[in-house]
Write a protein that binds this DNA or RNA. Structure first.
Lengths: 109, 109
DNA sequence: CCCATACATCGTAATATTACGATTGATTTA
DNA sequence: TAAATCAATCGTAATATTACGATGTATGGG
């Protein structure tokens, strides 16, 4: 056992869970927030900004790129990362849809 | 190694990541969506609804209760679960805050 | 009191994630 | 071309998650 049984869930449920998983780490939150805050591409100051090893950060960046949230373009000797607007918007919408589905009605429990 | 280095992140980042982690599994998404859809408390039809063992579902419910999203009250021989409106609202707000922080500006990369 | 039902918890196996040092690959500069 | 720089990848250790059978615990009915 040990592996998530994706087969028994709907594609939408699996996809949403995967989206959330991609964000569910403080380092990845920090990376995204840094990108949001700096309002521009980041070309390699992430390692000094966060307190993690270069290999670890590269791994987190890879995950964020894998789900499409980040784009990386080569910029001379370093690499320029930035948020993919479209994907970010899709994430935002999906989360909203999920949370908005429940309307509190007070009482019951 | 292997453990997340929470010390190096802000409490807000750790908290947000923990929230996302609690939701980052299709079974927990399915449980919440079922509760949302049924518009009432659920008293034990979850095991037949999802295709997971009773112990596994109980474990997922425990996680959702741990972060406060679910309340469980004893209802005779079974247990009645429902969403905690307040906590749900907090989650919703936090997610919105996170996603709204980024405003696309087109170009750059 | 005894049994059935409904959950929770324990123990454990399989798998996934996180982190880092070491190495590799690409590109710029001397 | 050689050295330097930056990031990706590899290999691996530590830890966390997922899933389930077995067992424990409480409640209601007989």
């Amino acid at each position: 056992m040990g592996a998530t049984k994706s087969e028994i869930f709907t594609p939408a449920q699996n996809e949403l869970a995967a989206m959330l998983k991609a964000l569910a780490h403080p380092a990845r939150i920090a990376i995204l927030q840094y990108l949001v805050k700096s309002r521009t591409c980041i070309c390699g100051d992430l390692v000094s900004e966060l307190g993690l090893a270069q290999a670890t950060i590269s791994q987190h960046l890879k995950e964020l790129k894998a789900v499409g949230l980040l784009k990386g373009t080569v910029e001379g000797t370093s690499i320029c990362y930035c948020i993919d607007e479209k994907v970010w918007g899709r994430y935002k919408k999906r989360m909203e849809q999920f949370f908005v589905a429940y309307e509190p009605k007070g009482g019951c429990c």
